[in-house]
């Protein structure tokens, strides 16, 4: 055997060392999450109320979403979702499209990431859609599955995946395949449910998604849910008022915007959004007062407030 030069041997050892290190090791955060779950939650979780749909070729996206939607109380078959989420050119479904489809069905699509988060969600009974790369980074085989449980004593995660219900996969293999999607996960919840790992801004953005999908009845419930958790939150109040207004529930919207004005008296936007509804209810003077108040408060949106005032002044008394 030819002797390697000293430097070469050093790098050889270094390489072997890192290979050995990588082979048996899980992401530190995952290890911590598993430790934490062991001390805080149940050892074995298996969500029994999640119906399983076996997927057809390449159609894991529609299948995973259908299972999640079905769990959330909608009766829907994967076939009905194919046209909404399946992109034939990609032989798959894009993450953003999946989110959009959940919203169009009036469900809050809340992204979650990391082992810690999905263990917590599953422990309280929420199944989580995950995106895995079953192949390698340079030869990807993307796959959506639904996490429906875990078994800490055996070290398994439990998935509705492909054609197998309650498929068990070791945390290490799951971690490796999931890491390649940067730990992408998605909750599909009824708008009256809050994620176990909920955070203010991501939740409000998820409800905003419902509003943008013109699912105003759902976004009304979503913002109300947000307000039970964060009473008086200005974003949730404004969203609720706007959604009610879009539904044509003008008196309901007025009540909410008035509350926003009372709790946040320096918010020009609250006064501004109060005005058009009042005007449509035929209370011109009150509308003018609110719009004027917004203009007086000013701020970065002043131009818009002025426009509101002018529109009401220009309208028929």
């Amino acid at each position: 055997m030819a002797r390697l030069p000293t430097g070469g041997r050093f790098y050889c050892c270094l390489f072997l060392f890192f290979t050995a290190l990588l082979a048996g090791c899980m992401n530190l955060q995952t290890q911590k999450a598993l430790q934490k779950a062991k001390t805080s939650g149940p050892d074995l979780v298996e969500l029994e109320e999640v119906k399983f749909y076996p997927q057809k070729a390449y159609q894991c996206g529609p299948a995973a979403l259908a299972m999640a939607l079905q769990w959330s109380g909608l009766s829907i078959e994967p076939e009905a979702l194919i046209s909404e989420v399946y992109t034939p050119a990609c032989k798959g479904s894009l993450q953003a499209v999946l989110i959009g489809a959940a919203r169009r069905h009036g469900r809050v699509a809340y992204p979650v990431s990391g082992m810690d988060a999905i263990l917590k969600e599953v422990a309280v009974g929420h199944p989580v859609i995950v995106l895995q790369n079953l192949g390698l980074s340079w030869y990807p085989i993307w796959h959506y599955a639904l996490v429906v449980g875990y078994d800490l004593s055996k070290g398994d995660i439990i998935l509705h995946s492909g054609i197998t219900p309650y498929k068990r996969l070791s945390f290490r293999v799951f971690e490796n395949t999931w890491a390649r999607s940067h730990y992408w996960g998605l909750l599909v919840l009824r708008p009256d449910q809050l994620p176990a790992t909920v955070q203010t801004m991501p939740y409000l953005e998820a409800v905003l998604g419902l509003e943008q999908a013109r699912q105003w009845s759902a976004s009304v419930v979503g913002y109300k849910t947000a307000l039970t958790r964060w009473p008086g939150n200005p974003g949730a109040l404004m969203g609720l008022g706007n959604s009610l207004y879009m539904l044509g529930e003008l008196t309901g919207a007025e009540e909410i915007f008035r509350k926003a004005c009372r709790l946040h008296p320096t918010s020009g936007s609250a006064f501004n959004n109060l005005a058009p509804g009042l005007s449509e209810l035929g209370r011109r003077q009150a509308a003018l007062d609110a719009a004027q108040r917004a203009v007086n408060l000013g701020g970065p949106l002043k131009a818009l407030y002025v426009k509101t005032l002018e529109e009401i002044q220009g309208g028929v008394p």
Binding site: M201, E211, P234, G235, M238, G239, S269, N272, E280, E311
Partner: peptide
């Protein structure tokens, strides 16, 4: 849909501004 629709401050704008503030 609504005559005064254009003059409403969108929820999106409210959230973006709140985020900037935070």
């Amino acid at each position: 849909f609504n005559q005064a629709d254009a003059a409403l401050v969108k929820t999106e704008t409210v959230l973006t501004m709140a985020q900037g503030q935070k």
